[in-house]
Computed example of a mutant assay.
Amino acid sequence: MPATLMRCPLLLGRQPVTALRHSFSSSRMRRVRKAAGGGGQGPPPAYGGLLLDAGGTLLQLAQPVAETYATLGRPYGVMKSEKYIMEGFKRAFSAPWPKTLRYQGDGRPFWRIVVAEATDCTNSNYFEEVYQYYAHGDAWRLPGGAYRTLRDLKDAGVKLAVVSNFDTRLRKLLKDLNVSHMFDAIVVSSEVGYEKPAPEIFKIALDQIGVEARNAVHVGDDETADKAGANAIGLKCWLWGEDVKKFSEIQHQIVAKGSR
């Protein structure tokens, strides 16, 4: 019950409490539906499906990776500057990977190389501490407005999917951040055996949500893995940080443009 009503009993006398509850509930639902453009009112959204990249798009780091590597590494003798660590981190990611997938299962083989290249430290205990740090939701955050956008798009009938090059920690991270239940499909490269930009990973996601490529849009932060990969199967892609910079913009592009 709204606090104003609890403070003012005279208002309660004007109509039954059950009626007030129904009124406020209905009013709230109308506002949500109006914001989302759904609920059976107005034209359908511009797209019936939204695919989202995880790391770098839906999941943002709570603090810079170089800062984390340096802080956790000090007890293990890591004295490299954050600039040095970041350069090594980028080198590890840009180097050719001899296997089919970077992220196989829990991704530890690949991440051991990344941590060692970035810090020059091969201590197993240090690696495990870094690995476990990123296995918890506290290490990540959602962009502003992400949760509300997902909720409103879902209410509007848009099918939602995560499509990510990630290891088996991803499902727990999405649960920790209280968004896993929002998605109709969560497609992780280490589980399905394909990594973006492979067309198969996008097709798996579209099949799982039951939406055709021409009626969906993908949002990710990588020109090759996300944009080129999605476009190759006729799936439109908006680059995070360029085409869209806020989740409210994603919602506007999907809902507002559907009303034109």
Rank of each mutant, 00 (worst) to 15 (best):
M86R: 14
W140T: 12
M86S: 09
L177M: 12
G220I: 10
K227D: 04
D176T: 07
L72Y: 05
M6A: 09
K227E: 02
A66T: 00
A216G: 03
I85S: 03
D138P: 02
G193T: 08
G157V: 12
R14D: 09
V32H: 06
M86K: 10
I250F: 14
L61D: 06
D120V: 02
A256P: 00
L5Q: 10
D53W: 13
V162F: 14
E223S: 03
G49E: 06
T119P: 04
S25E: 12
L50P: 05
V162M: 13
L142D: 03
A139I: 12
I209F: 11
K245H: 07
K227M: 08
M6W: 14
V130R: 10
A116I: 02
A116L: 10
I233M: 03
R151L: 10
K203G: 01
V78R: 04
G107H: 00
A35R: 09
Q132K: 12
F202V: 07
N178S: 14
I113T: 10
F127T: 06
V162T: 05
D222Q: 10
P98F: 10
K80L: 09
Y84D: 00
S259C: 11
Y131R: 12
A135K: 00
Q253M: 13
D207Y: 01
E117C: 08
E117Y: 03
V192Y: 11
P44D: 11
S248E: 11
A213Q: 13
R33E: 15
D176P: 08
V17H: 03
L153P: 00
E212M: 13
V188A: 15
M182K: 05
V162S: 08
A46Y: 05
K196E: 12
F127S: 08
F24N: 11
Q60I: 04
L160M: 13
P45S: 06
G39C: 05
K80N: 00
A46S: 11
R14G: 11
P44T: 11
Q60D: 03
